[in-house]
Amino acid sequence: MNEILSIQNLSKNFGKIKAVDDLSFTVEKGTVYGILGPNGSGKTTTLSVITGVLHPASGSYRWFGNKPGKWERKRMGSLIEIPNFYPYLTLFQNLQIVARIKNVQEEDINRVLGITDLLRRKYSRFDTLSLGMKQRLSFASVLLGDPEVLVLDEPANGLDPEGIAEVRKIIMSERDKGKTIIIASHILDEVEKVCTHVGILKMGKLIASGRVDKLLVMDRVVTMSAPDNTKLKEILEKSGLVKSIKEDVDSITATILSETEPGEINKYVIEKGITLTRLEVNKPTLESQFLELVREQN
């Protein structure tokens, strides 16, 4: 049984708004599936349906090949939207409640608090935590009982850069253990770094899906300046390193081939006697990637 999750023609609307529109995809065992989309594209709604809190308007989904129910949910660790805990209970008591629901030994609580670096706050009330710590506690709760499937909705939300790096490290180590992970995110970079597969949502519809390395290959855009921009442009055009090039007021913008490293450009132009005063690699935005994908679809 390799199919962990399969969604067939799932739709969900809130009043007249179609939050999820005829969505179908499957997630295989051991893959990290990223659901990518801008805010309001239906990511959280999709995850809320498959974790049992929203009723689908039509369509269906299966977990582990079964009709979904509470026993399937106990085998998953899910983090949907914001951390939901009892503010007046301690971290330990809050995790005790989760452990009892999932039939997990209470000894596991210390392990997950350790992973998320919250052990010294074990007996603090939940409402005394900072936002980042609350998010980390959600993560601890997700990891409780070492579930075979993780469902994560914007796991890096509200975390500082260090926290984001930690969470990414945890996700990667879970991935390397062979866990199946489903992540919703609007951050292209996050999905690119951790996912093996990706589905792109727009207005509740799946506009593209497939392996990350096939779907998200993109050209990088580099912005450069030199004392003489016109000369720089001429040199680059002949170099064979760039796809297209455009001159702006005080800089030039070049789309470079995906196998080209920005450093190579620098090296090349220095050899030609030009010193760059600015070299900036622009990460393609999700929006531009979308436009690209939508264009490809048509």
């Binding site: 974790t51 049992g52 809190v53 509470k70 949910r73 899910s78 914001i82 939901n84 009892y86 629901i101």
Partner: peptide
């Protein structure tokens, strides 16, 4: 209001 009914269903209660 704590959204814990929701969370408990996510965690595996009916």
């Amino acid at each position: 209001s704590f959204r814990t009914f929701r969370q408990q269903v996510i965690n595996g209660l009916s």
